[in-house]
Amino acid sequence: MSFNVENYFSDLSDKDIILFYKGNVDSDIINHILDTVEDKMVEMNEQPKLRKKVYNVLVESLQNLYHHVDRVPEDFEDQTSEKFGLLVVKKIKNGYKIITGNFVHAGNIEKLEEKIKRINRSSHEEIKELYKFILNHQRISPKGGGGLGLVDIARKTGNKLEYSFKEYNDKYSFFYLNILVTEDI
């Protein structure tokens, strides 16, 4: 299998990438990533408002991986990671781009895509209402997720969720989520 998750990033050597991680997403790694990115943003003198948004979005993205990733395919290079995920944080003009990647079972693609499409066709007001509805009506799943992560990301960034599914084999796809956190919102 020639599949390589890094091929997706033609510009990985880019100096604007402030963090790249792939591997198991556990609680310690999440702490480490959050600390690293927070320190870098302070170092770069980012405005508190932008810093907070990036931090919030990063928490939700990482915890989405933590709570929801499917197991890696049997022939994938990394079999030791129980929760395999990928994360890129890149400095862009006016803000940051956060990219996450993870495997999704073919059977789970439709549900995930439908959820994103629903968010993307909603206005900011509708997203606020959706957030409140889920907050008030949905219980925390056995996996520990609240079903609010993507809605919260869309609400806080004010941007559409860009995504793609790259087929790995007939059972799995690799899901990329591109999140833009920009200053002028």
């Binding site: 939700e60 997720g145 609240g146």
Partner: peptide, 12 residues
């Protein structure tokens, strides 16, 4: 200062 969506349900 920060809370995640999982905490938001517990705070409710």
């Amino acid at each position: 200062e920060y809370f995640n969506t999982s905490s938001s349900k517990c705070i409710l």
